[in-house]
């Protein structure tokens, strides 16, 4: 109904169909992630890459279907701030791992 579709800036509303599709996709992605580890289908670096890609996919699914993020103009500041935070998070995590790995390497005296 049009009367219930009241939009606040920065807060979009979903529909039952949207939430159901989101839930089903999340179940599939979670089951896939746990499945490859529990059945030991893949191992080592391949497994790490597959798990990370599946996790990113599920985060995207939840952002779109549960949090209703989209590219409409009334969400421009939500999206801008989110992209900024993604950059910060990447610097934080990649930077920490990078620096500490080098530090470990340099601390190994006589090697």
């Amino acid at each position: 109904m049009a009367s219930t579709e009241k939009h606040h800036g920065g807060a979009a509303h979903g529909s039952l169909k949207e939430y159901t599709i989101g839930l089903l996709l999340c179940i599939v992605l979670t089951a896939f992630s746990f499945g490859i580890v529990m059945t030991e289908a893949v191992s080592g670096t391949t497994a790490v890459i597959v798990i990370l890609i599946t996790a990113v996919a599920q985060i995207m699914v939840q952002l779109v279907f549960f949090l209703h993020m989209n590219t409409s103009s009334d969400q421009i500041w939500n999206n801008t701030s989110a992209v900024f935070v993604v950059v910060l998070v990447a610097i934080l995590i990649v930077g920490s791992i990078w620096i500490m790995a080098h530090l470990n390497h340099n601390m190994m005296m006589g090697h």
């Binding site: 579709e5 009241k6 979903g14 939840q62 549960f66």
Partner: peptide, 15 residues
């Protein structure tokens, strides 16, 4: 995961 879904349905009821 299911609690995230049920919260979504709760929002629909609130609407």
């Amino acid at each position: 995961l299911f609690s995230s879904f049920t919260f979504g349905i709760a929002i629909l009821e609130a609407n």
